[in-house]
C-alpha cells in the first residue's frame, strides 16, 4: 500500500485498542455478572475500580443494565464499541468494506441486545463478531504493516487491561511476548524503553501495576 499517513496510523491503532477493550471488558462483565448473582449489592464496585471507571451506578442492577448499554456514559461498553466503529469506518480504503462489516454487525447487535429479554445471551454474538473481525483482518489484509498497527493496538489494550485486573504473571508474560514481537512490525516509532521496563518487571515478577500501566499507555504517541 505504500506509506501510511499519521491520521490513518492513529485510526488503525485506536481501532485495535477499542475493539479489544470491548472484547475483554465484555468477557470480564460476563464473569462479574455471574459473581454478582450470588454476591453482595456492592460487588460491582470492584469491577469499576479495576477498570478505573467512575462508579456512577447506584446499585448492582443499575450497573448491570447500564455499563454495557448506556450510550451517554463514555465509559460504557457500547461507547467503546461506537469508538471502534468511528475508527473503522474511516479505514475503508485500508481494511476493506467486508472487514468493517463485522464492526457494523457488532454495533447493531449491541444496540438490539439492550432490548432483549436475555441481554447476556445476545451479547455473546457481539463477541462472535469481534472475533470474526480479527479473523477477517488476518484473512484479507495483505499489508503486514497495516495488520500490525491494528494488532499492536489490540496487544497494548489487552496487556493494559490484564495489568489492571492483576492477572497471573504467566498470562502477562504471554501477552507481553505477543506485544513485543508485534511492535517491531508496525513501522511506528515507539518508546523501546517501555518494552525493556515491562520485560524486566514481568520476568522478575516485580510489577508496579500503576507505573506499568502508565508507561504502557505512553508507548506510542499517535
Amino acid at each position: 500500500m505504500g506509506i501510511i499517513a499519521l491520521e490513518k496510523a492513529s485510526g488503525l491503532y485506536w481501532l485495535g485498542r477499542y475493539n479489544e477493550r470491548v472484547y475483554t471488558t465484555l468477557r470480564e462483565f460476563f464473569v462479574g455478572y455471574d459473581r454478582m448473582i450470588d454476591e453482595s449489592e456492592d460487588s460491582y464496585k470492584e469491577l469499576c475500580s479495576m477498570l478505573d471507571i467512575p462508579d456512577v451506578y447506584g446499585s448492582k442492577m443499575e450497573f448491570i443494565n447500564k455499563y454495557p448499554f448506556d450510550e451517554k456514559n463514555v465509559d460504557s461498553i457500547i461507547s467503546n464499541l461506537t469508538r471502534t466503529y468511528d475508527n473503522a469506518m474511516v479505514m475503508r480504503d485500508v481494511i476493506g468494506t467486508e472487514t468493517i462489516s463485522y464492526v457494523e454487525l457488532a454495533l447493531s447487535c449491541m444496540k438490539a441486545a439492550r432490548y432483549s429479554e436475555a441481554p447476556l445471551l445476545e451479547l455473546q454474538e457481539v463477541i462472535d463478531y469481534i472475533l470474526a473481525f480479527w479473523g477477517y483482518v488476518d484473512d484479507s489484509i495483505d499489508d503486514r504493516q497495516i495488520r500490525s498497527i491494528i494488532k499492536a493496538g489490540r496487544r497494548i489494550e489487552r496487556l493494559d487491561l490484564y495489568l489492571r485486573f492483576e492477572r497471573p504473571v504467566s498470562m502477562l508474560e504471554r501477552e507481553f511476548a505477543k506485544l513485543k514481537s508485534r511492535m517491531e512490525l508496525t513501522g511506528l516509532s515507539y518508546d523501546k524503553t517501555v518494552i525493556s521496563y515491562l520485560e524486566q518487571a514481568i520476568t522478575e515478577n516485580k510489577i508496579n501495576y500503576s507505573e506499568a500501566i502508565l508507561k504502557l499507555e505512553n508507548i506510542v504517541k499517535l
Binding site: A5, L6, K8, M89, V90, R92, D93, G96, T97
Partner: peptide, 17 residues
C-alpha cells in the same frame, strides 16, 4: 468517498494528509 477509494485502489485522504 471511502467505498470508491477502496474499489479504485486510491488513497482516501483528508486535507491534513
Amino acid at each position: 468517498h471511502s467505498f470508491l477509494a477502496e474499489k479504485t485502489g486510491s488513497i482516501l485522504a483528508t486535507g491534513q494528509e
